[in-house]
């Protein structure tokens, strides 16, 4: 138990990082109504691009920007497979994800892991976040504002602010309309192929950003780090929705709920592990939890029918 409490700041930090990924998933899953499986690949693409560039001496911010851009390219690939080639969205995502596995390996020079050498303090100091910082701040060796919770928290807040603005613009609204009713969107002159591609690019860019942050936190990029990302993202979205949908009505707060959902998910997983569960069963546990939560709305509708509405003009 003491172990768990000691590990809590680290777990929350990681949860926040996954939360950024989950916000990316929210854009496709909730706003565009597409379950985009490419994120399992693009998460690692972001991490790989960042680590390789950074360890080769590229400026940290440029490396992060590059990570976001390659993530967006991955989204573009999925988007074009779906819209231009007419492949169902799920399958497009799977194809991109599969292809990215090779691409990620290629980025990492055909190695399954590329590490950032944090024994070199100059390198460590440059990083935005690191598990080491959690310990350093606790020991008083680093200022509080270097704590990953604080740094990733700022990232999350800035991201939510930008998305809140974007989805309030004409372009953002056309993206939401596409997810809500593509028929109506086209009838209103919206190029739904374009908005879908744009949404997928935006989403995967954010996912790759999250990957770049996690690579810094763990001081390594690893070929399997994105495996199951989509499930974690969905879990975060659903947990956030179940816990806060009654409370949060505003779009920005919905995104915040996703981030909190990711933290809760991650902390619970850590707790389960601390209680002695074999880590090999982790994926099974995640899959089960998400499956149950995804079934709830369906069961609710099936076994607890809502009151029938009539079609009169005045009654809503």
């Amino acid at each position: 138990m003491l172990n768990l409490i000691n590990a809590l700041p680290g777990a929350v930090s990681q949860g926040l990082i996954w939360g950024i990924m989950a916000i990316g998933v929210y854009i496709t899953y909730k706003l565009l109504d597409i379950a985009d499986l490419s994120v399992d690949g693009s998460f690692c693409t972001g991490a790989a691009a960042f680590v390789v560039l950074f360890t080769n001496g590229v400026n940290l911010w440029l490396a992060m920007l590059a990570a976001v851009l390659v993530g967006m390219i991955a989204g573009l690939a999925t988007g074009l497979l779906h819209t231009f080639c007419g492949i169902p969205a799920i399958l497009s995502g799977i194809l991109t994800q599969l292809g990215l596995y090779s691409i990620n390996l290629a980025i990492m020079g055909m190695k399954s892991t590329v590490a950032v050498n944090i024994t070199d303090t100059a390198t460590l100091d440059k990083l935005l976040v690191s598990l080491r910082f959690v310990q350093d701040v606790a020991k008083g060796e680093r200022p509080l504002y270097r704590h990953p919770i604080f740094v990733v928290g700022i990232f999350t807040a800035a991201l939510i602010a930008v998305l809140y603005w974007f989805f309030g613009t004409e372009l953002g609204c056309s993206l939401r309309a596409t997810g809500s009713n593509p028929n109506m969107a086209r009838a209103q002159g919206i190029n739904t192929d374009f908005t879908k591609v744009l949404g997928l690019m935006l989403s995967n860019g954010i996912v790759a950003l999250s990957g770049a942050l996690l690579a810094q936190f763990n001081s390594a990029s690893e070929i399997n780090m994105g495996r199951g990302a989509i499930v974690i993202g969905l879990a975060a979205v659903i947990i956030g929705e179940v816990l806060f949908s009654k409370l949060f009505r505003n779009f920005a707060l919905n995104l915040l709920a996703v981030s909190i959902g990711a933290i809760i998910y991650y902390v619970v997983i850590q707790a389960v592990l601390a209680m002695g569960m074999n880590p090999n069963y982790l994926k099974l546990l995640s899959a089960t939890v998400v499956a149950v939560f995804l079934s709830v709305p369906y069961w609710k509708e099936k076994y607890m029918p809502v009151k029938v509405k009539t079609g009169g003009l005045q009654d809503a």
């Binding site: 974007f166 309030g168 613009t169 004409e170 372009l171 953002g172 609204c173 056309s174 939401r176 309309a177 969107a185 209103q188 002159g189 919206i190």
Partner: peptide, 18 residues
């Protein structure tokens, strides 16, 4: 939002407020 979407039918949708 629905009305605003419709009022922009056939126009370029940019980064102005929705």
């Amino acid at each position: 939002e629905n009305l605003a979407l419709a009022s922009r039918r056939g126009q370029r949708r940019g980064l102005g407020w929705g």
